[in-house]
Design a protein around this nucleic acid. Structure first.
Lengths: 236, 236
DNA sequence: CGCCTCTTTGAGCTCAATCAAGGTGTGTGG
DNA sequence: CCACACACCTTGATTGAGCTCAAAGAGGCG
């Protein structure tokens, strides 16, 4: 049997619950986690850094990470919000000399399972089912990016609504009591949409006034999901 | 030996030249092309249509295709310009009941190799090397999308410059005598960037006046690639 | 308590969208 | 062969959504 870190072993049930590992046995999971370790990050700590040699890839265990790219002028762009079950850095694992294409920054206290590239090459690739799961995750992220691209001409309110809807649907599929499963600031929404903070705030405070959303304990609750959906469809 | 269509057989050398099939033997190629056929499209003809059941995926042989999504209001968004060697539709091949996520439209006379999904499932998946190549192609497209996302706040001229550079670099890696390997209109550039035709024209006619680009026979030539690069770096 | 980040609001400005009108080139049918 | 349609390109005038700048209040934390 493969030797794995004790703390990782303790997390196996948690790991197994992610849809990525549908149908994997406890044994295969252990094999897939060879050499893995758990990194605990506090708010705004960086886990993987853009440009650095990619020796590991990651699986978000808890909390959330934003995947960020900084331009030469210091303006940040957020490319993706990674939530539990999301893989980070798998895109470059196949490259010969991989470097991280983005920086991942913890949003609030978070935990990342860091798995060596060698384990990916030697073990993950041996599970066709897993490769397909990864591809399907990539495809989902791809279609999110494409969706955003096709909304380029839409007004800002539509973009914000779509983003909130997309993120909230990650976790709960129930249409009731929707909330965002990560502590996201208006600045981060702006940086994700390529808008200014002020504009995002103007859009969202309108919604707050109309009781469509509410902000409590740094969490955004979607009170009137229907209204938000309506807003998100305004493409006229 | 696998039986393949005669016209496909005639194209095997052409197909083999694509980097996707690096190191594949003629025999394995034939196996990968089982049941494939070549579709010849004229300008503006549709090859795969959004929403239709995805029975085949495609490999662009010659010409070019734009991958398009139409919004409810009839405004087209171009998600990608597919040039020879590009795969179309592989993203959804792993899904249980796949439908095309975009419509692909020929730009000028073009040829697409259409390969049955069953061949993908039964044969392509058996070549790990191929799967990695596909992933790497996906990753390239992904990073193009991410790049574009990170340029959301840049002025239009920067976006246009980057797009022209990106497309021109597909083919020739030589820095001299750059031209775009596909007949692209200003409207299409606009639809790809989420801008208006008029704005794109204003940017590009400035460049024409300054002899940075020229339009001849529906082709765009990049006369001063250096100037364009410079333009593309204007991020301040 | 001072520092830092996040949020908020107002005022003014700007880039690019929209609207309008005309020019060019190509294919098609009478 | 002409004329008509159609797609594309171009230019100018006007407008507005969202950006920038500025200033200030509200937690949270060492």
């Amino acid at each position: 049997m493969d030797k794995i870190d004790q703390s990782v072993g303790a997390c196996l049930p948690e790991i197994q619950s992610f849809s990525l590992f549908q149908g994997q046995t406890k044994e295969s999971l252990q094999s897939l986690c060879l050499g893995a370790s758990i990194e605990v990050n506090s708010h705004r700590e960086e886990c993987f850094v853009l440009g650095e040699s990619a020796s590991h890839f990651g699986l978000v265990l808890s909390g959330a990470y934003k995947l960020v790219r900084v331009s030469s002028e210091g303006t940040e762009t957020i490319l993706y919000f990674a939530t539990p079950g999301d893989l980070v850095g798998t895109l470059v694992m196949n490259k010969a000399k991989p470097t991280y294409p983005v920086t991942s920054v913890a949003m609030g206290p978070s935990r990342m399972l860091k798995i060596p590239r060698s384990t990916y090459i030697e073990r993950w690739l041996a599970y066709p089912q897993l490769i397909l799961e990864i591809q399907s995750a990539l495809s989902q992220r791809m279609s999110q990016l494409q969706m955003q691209k096709s909304m380029l001409k839409a007004p800002l309110s539509v973009k914000v609504a779509q983003l909130l809807i997309e993120i909230s649907e990650r976790e709960s599929k129930s249409s009731e009591t929707n909330y965002l499963p990560l502590p996201i600031t208006r600045r981060e929404i702006a940086e994700s949409l390529g808008a200014s903070v002020e504009s995002v705030i103007r859009v969202m405070s309108d919604w707050s006034k109309n009781k469509i959303i509410e902000t409590k304990d740094q969490r955004i609750n979607l009170l009137r999901f229907d209204k938000l959906l309506e807003e998100g469809q305004k493409l006229e």
